[in-house]
Design a protein around this nucleic acid. Structure first.
Lengths: 216, 216
DNA sequence: TAATAAATTTAGACAAGTCTAAATTTATTA
DNA sequence: TAATAAATTTAGACTTGTCTAAATTTATTA
C-alpha cells in the first residue's frame, strides 16, 4: 500500500489535472500546503513507483495505476461525506475535514459495503459524482455560473469549493443544490452576477459565480 | 493532537495495565510488534508529554490525561466494530483490523453521532463494554472459563482474544456470545475443559478456556 | 553473595517526509 | 536575444519513529 502522503499527492494531482494537462510543482505545493522542494522529492518517489509521469521542470501526469488509486481515494472521500450528511446528519459544510481523514481507511470491502448500505448514491453532498468500484464516473455536463450569459439558467448541481465559509454563504443565500436559477444581469464593472430564483433576485460576486456549477 | 504511534502506545499500555500494575518495556514491544529500544524512545516522549509515569527500568503507568486518551481510542474502536457488524454486516472475526485504522479518526463529534445513530450500544461484537463519551465503562463481573470449577456455568459474554483464527474457531464450535454453558469436566492432565451446552458437550483447550469470559 | 541471565537503556544509524538556502532551468520582457 | 524574473531542483539539515549492537541495570541462581 501507499503512505498517507503519497495518497494525498496522487489525489491532488488528479484534481489539478482536471484543469490543466500537466500539473506543476508549484500548483501542488500550493494545494498541499507545502514547499516546492518537498513536492519535487515526492514526485521522484511517485515516479519511481510508476504512479506518475514526471519530467523535471515539465510537471506531471498520472499513470493509469496512479489514476486508479486517486479515483479510489475520491470515491472513499465522497462516500464518507454522503454517510456523514445522510446518516449522521452533519451539514454539508462540516464534513470535508472528516472525510479527508476517512478517505485513507484502506479496506475496499468496507467501502463497497458502505456504498450498498447507503443505496449506492450517485452524488455526494456537494454534487460531485461518486465513482463506482471500478472507478467509473457518472459524467454530466455542468457549466460554471460565471460562464453563462444573461437569460441562461438551470439547476444548481455542484460546487467547486468545499470550504465551510463558501458553503455557509450559499446556505444563507439559499443557493443550495437543486435550486433553479437564471442569469438576470451581469455587472460589467466587476462581473458580479444577478441571479433570478423563483422568488427573488440574488447578487453574487464573480468569485462565487466561478465556484457554482449548474445543469442546464 | 497525538500521532498515530503515540495513540497506539497509549492504547497498548492501557490494555496491559489491566493485568499488571506496571507495564514493562518488553510487554509493550511484544504487543506492538516492535523492539524494546523503540519502546524506550517512545516512553520518554510520552513521559515528556505527561501522558505516562515512567521510571527507567521500572515500567510505566498511564497518567489521568493519558488514560483519557486511551479510553477514547478504545471507545472509537468498539463503536466502529459495532458499526461494521451491525450496519455493514461484517462478521465478528473480520472487523478488528479495520477498526484499528478507524479508531484514529479524530473527530469526537463524529463518534458521538455515530454512537447515537446506532442507539448507544453498550457492548461491542466481542462483548467488550463501550465506554461512554465521558470514558465511563459499564462494569460487569465476568469470569474466565479457565477459572471455573466443575458444575459452575453461565453465559458466554466476551472474548479476550480478537484474532480471526480464534473467533472463527468459536463460531464453528457454536461458542458465541449469549450461549449458555456449564463446566462438565476438567481434564487434569492438560487442563482441557469439557463444556455442557443445551444440546451437546464440547471439549476446549486450556488456551481457549483462558480467552473466554462468562457472566455467571 | 558472586556470577550469570534477562530486561532495559544508550549510542549511533536509517527511511520518510519536510524545510531553508543556493543553484539551475525555463519563461518573460525590454 | 540578452537580461531578468519565475519556477523548479539540488544540497544539506531536521523530526519522527524505527532499528542493531553495545552498555547498563535488575533479577535469578548456584
Amino acid at each position: 500500500m501507499n503512505t498517507l502522503a503519497e495518497e494525498n499527492y496522487l489525489k491532488s494531482i488528479y484534481h489539478l489535472s482536471l484543469n490543466a494537462e500537466n500539473v506543476s510543482t508549484n500548483q501542488l505545493a500550493a494545494l498541499l500546503n507545502t514547499k516546492a522542494s518537498s513536492v519535487t522529492d515526492m514526485l521522484k518517489k511517485l515516479s519511481d513507483k510508476e504512479l506518475i509521469n514526471y519530467t523535471p521542470y515539465q510537471g506531471v501526469t498520472l499513470t493509469v495505476p496512479g489514476e486508479k488509486i486517486a479515483v479510489n481515494i475520491i470515491r472513499k472521500h465522497r462516500l464518507w461525506e454522503y454517510f456523514l450528511v445522510e446518516k449522521l446528519n452533519f451539514k454539508w459544510d462540516e464534513v470535508h475535514e472528516m472525510a479527508e481523514e476517512m478517505e485513507h481507511i484502506s479496506s475496499n470491502e468496507l467501502i463497497d459495503r458502505l456504498d450498498k448500505f447507503m443505496g449506492c448514491p450517485e452524488y455526494d453532498p456537494h454534487g460531485d459524482p461518486i465513482p463506482d468500484s471500478n472507478g467509473a464516473f457518472k459524467v454530466n455536463d455542468l457549466k460554471l455560473v460565471s460562464a453563462l450569459s444573461v437569460t441562461e439558467g438551470g439547476t444548481i448541481w455542484a460546487v467547486r469549493n468545499h470550504s465551510p465559509a463558501f458553503l455557509q454563504y450559499l446556505e444563507k443565500q439559499e443557493l443550495t443544490i437543486g435550486k433553479k436559477i437564471r442569469i438576470a444581469e451581469i455587472i460589467e464593472f466587476d462581473h458580479s452576477v444577478i441571479l433570478q430564483t423563483e422568488d427573488k433576485r440574488i447578487q453574487i460576486s464573480r468569485e462565487v459565480a466561478n465556484n457554482l456549477l449548474i445543469s442546464i
